[in-house]
C-alpha cells in the first residue's frame, strides 16, 4: 500500500455518481470519466461499488506486464500510469488482463485510458478529483494515519484473492475488523455448478 493513497469504503458509497462527474475534470483525460460505479445486486440491494485503478504492487501491474508495447509505465512512487499515447496500440490486453476491470480502450482512437490517481493533482499533493467531491467519504485520500484520525479503529486491507492468486494493491479497501487477516475476495467464481458460476 502506498503512503498516501485512496481508501475505498463501499459501505459508505450511496451511488450519487459525484465521483463519476468529477473524474471528467482530470487533466490527463479531460472530458472522459474513468471511474466506474457499479451496482452489486441491482434490484435487491442499494449497494454500490466505486472502482478506481487499484495500482497493483505485487505482482506489479498485470496490465503493464501484458502490454506488448511497453506503453504502461509505473512511477517510482507506485502509480500505474495510463498508456503512453505514442506507444499504445489499442490491443485491449490490459483491459482483459486487469482483474479489477479498470482500463478502457477508446476503439476509435485505438488508445487505452485508465485512472492514474489524478497524477496531475496527486503529484502536487492534492487529492484526486473523485476523493475531493465524495460526499460520504467512500473515497478517502490520505495516509492511513490521517484516515484513522478521522475514523478511529478503522481497518483496511490491501490484498485481493483471485482463486489461488493473492494480489497486493496500492489502493486499500475498508474492511470489518475480523476480515483484516485474509485477502478480500476478488469475485472470481471458483466453482461451476451445472454450467453456472458460483462465487
Amino acid at each position: 500500500m502506498m503512503g498516501r493513497t485512496i481508501f475505498i469504503d463501499p459501505g459508505r458509497c450511496i451511488g450519487c455518481r459525484a465521483c463519476v462527474s468529477a473524474c471528467r475534470e482530470c487533466d490527463s483525460h479531460r472530458g472522459t470519466s474513468l471511474i466506474h460505479l457499479d451496482l452489486s445486486d441491482e434490484g435487491h440491494s442499494a449497494a454500490s461499488l466505486p472502482t478506481v485503478c487499484m495500482h497493483c504492487e505485487d505482482p506489479v501491474a498485470p496490465c503493464a506486464e501484458v502490454c506488448p508495447a511497453d506503453a504502461i509505465l509505473v512511477t517510482p512512487d507506485g502509480v500505474v500510469q495510463q498508456a503512453d499515447p505514442t506507444r499504445c496500440i489499442g490491443c485491449s490486453n490490459c483491459v482483459n488482463a486487469c482483474p479489477f476491470g479498470v482500463p478502457v480502450v477508446d476503439t476509435r482512437a485505438r488508445l487505452q485510458m485508465k485512472c492514474d490517481l489524478c497524477y496531475d493533482r496527486t503529484a502536487h499533493g492534492l487529492a484526486p478529483m473523485c476523493a475531493t467531491v465524495c460526499p460520504t467519504g467512500a473515497l478517502f485520500y490520505g495516509t492511513l494515519e490521517e484516515l484513522r484520525a478521522e475514523r478511529p479503529g478503522v481497518r483496511v486491507a490491501d490484498s485481493f484473492a483471485f482463486g489461488d492468486v493473492v494480489l497486493r494493491t496500492g489502493v486499500a479497501t475498508v474492511v470489518p475488523a475480523d476480515k483484516v487477516d485474509w485477502p478480500v475476495p476478488g469475485g472470481l467464481p471458483v466453482v461451476e455448478v451445472n454450467g453456472v458460476d458460483v462465487p
Binding site: D41, A47, G101
Partner: peptide, 30 residues
C-alpha cells in the same frame, strides 16, 4: 507465462468483474 494465475478471469468482461467483486464484498466481507 508471466505467472499471472488468474488468466481465467480474462473470459469475463470488465463490468462483470467489477460486479462480481462487489457481490463478493457484499456477501463475504461486509
Amino acid at each position: 507465462e508471466l505467472d499471472l494465475g488468474f488468466d481465467e478471469w480474462a473470459e469475463y468482461c470488465p463490468r462483470c468483474k467489477r460486479q462480481l467483486r462487489g457481490a463478493a464484498y457484499l456477501t463475504q466481507v461486509k
